[in-house]
Simulated assay, not measured.
Amino acid sequence: MNANAVRVGLRRGWIEFRQTWGNRQDLMGYLLPTVILLGVLSFQRDAVVAGISLGATSVPGVLGMTIAFGGLVSLGQLMVTEREDGTLLRAKAVPHGMFGYLIGKLVLVTGMTLTSIAILLIPSLVMFEGFTLGIGSLLGLLGMTVLGLVATIPIGATIGSLFTSPNSMALIMLPMIGLIVISGIFFPVTTFPEWVQWIAQVFPVYWLGLGMRSALLPDEMMTLEIGESWRHLETIGVLGLWAVAGLVIAPVVLRRMARRESGSTVAARREKAMQRVV
Rank of each mutant, 00 (worst) to 15 (best):
M1E: 03
A3M: 12
A5T: 11
A5F: 05
G9E: 12
G9C: 12
I15N: 03
Q19I: 00
Q19E: 11
T20L: 03
W21A: 09
Q25E: 11
L27S: 03
P33W: 01
L37V: 14
L38S: 02
L38H: 09
L41T: 10
S42K: 02
V48C: 04
A50D: 03
G51A: 02
G51D: 00
S53T: 03
G55A: 02
P60Y: 01
G64K: 08
I67R: 07
V73F: 11
V80M: 06
E84Y: 03
D85P: 02
K92H: 07
A93P: 12
G100V: 06
G100A: 00
L114A: 15
M127D: 07
T132H: 01
I135P: 04
M144P: 02
L149Q: 04
V150K: 00
A151T: 08
A151Y: 01
T152V: 13
P154C: 07
T158D: 10
L162Q: 07
T164S: 15
P166Q: 10
M169Q: 06
I172L: 02
I177F: 12
I177E: 00
S183G: 11
G184A: 05
F186V: 14
V189N: 04
F192P: 12
V196D: 11
Q197C: 06
W198H: 14
V202M: 01
P204D: 11
V205W: 02
W207I: 15
L208H: 11
G209H: 06
M212Q: 13
M221H: 10
S229R: 01
W230L: 00
R231F: 00
L233P: 04
L233F: 14
L233E: 15
G237Q: 14
V238F: 01
G240H: 00
G240N: 03
V244R: 08
A245R: 05
V253P: 00
V253Y: 09
R255M: 11
R255I: 10
R255S: 11
A258H: 12
R260D: 04
G263V: 05
M274H: 02
Q275L: 15
R276I: 09
R276D: 05
V277W: 08
